[in-house]
Design a protein around this nucleic acid. Structure first.
Lengths: 110, 110
DNA sequence: GTATGATGCCTACCGTTTCTAGGTATCGTG
DNA sequence: CACGATACCTAGAAACGGTAGGCATCATAC
């Protein structure tokens, strides 16, 4: 059980993964690191969340995957954003903006 | 099944309920209306989400409830934020801010 | 007068999401 | 050689919010 809500990604996992991949092809483990790094260590995606998510995202055609060997000489599965994935990222970002705006409006109320 | 993510509250339901009640005592159905109105119709909490949430929130001591008759002459269950609930609201708002900030950082990346 | 929609409460069940907790293997470093 | 980091994966469970139903009252429209 997650300790507190701040640790939860609350529906943003797909968007984060797509965003991470929009900066360039990457393998699974690297996605986790990139998200953690970009968020100043505030977000940490668990492996148990990531891999099923990647599978799901691949099924939807938002990323394509291939096995390759990266510079360290190790094998890894590389994911690349597809055109459809880029579109999905935009959609999810718009939804997120919309949600944030709506929440902000409620919170503004006095 | 929810049509799209924009419709989802993504973990903010409790915060929204507490916020709505922070503006004054209110009955269940009224909470739904207040949230919808404050968010400019962008957020709509379903009854099937609200009532179980209110029960849960009451169990945690964040709100107190009493049956009463409101101005229209109808009976309704009125909920009031407790001191503990006000504290919880602050906590949840801080978590939300933290999440938004983290997401924003990732999204800024080029 | 009665049908209908809004108000008002509730429950049971379901789908999605993300977590925890495990497993496997390789690599570099102390 | 042990150990942590890297790299992949799955199973199971918890949390959350939705759908879909039920019940009752009230005002309005037909």
């Amino acid at each position: 059980m997650p300790k507190n809500k701040a640790d939860l990604l609350q529906g943003t996992l797909d968007m984060l993964i797509l965003k991470a991949l929009s900066l360039g092809e990457l393998h699974g483990y690297g996605i986790i690191q990139r998200i953690r790094q970009l968020s100043d260590e505030m977000l940490s995606v668990e492996q148990g969340s990531l891999y099923p998510a990647l599978y799901r995202i691949e099924q939807k055609g938002w990323v394509s995957a291939r096995w390759d060997i990266h510079e360290t000489g190790r094998e890894a599965k590389f994911y690349k954003l597809t055109r459809s994935g880029r579109k999905q990222l935009e959609t999810e970002e718009a939804s997120w903006d919309r949600l944030c705006l709506a929440i902000a409006k409620v919170r503004q109320a006095t």
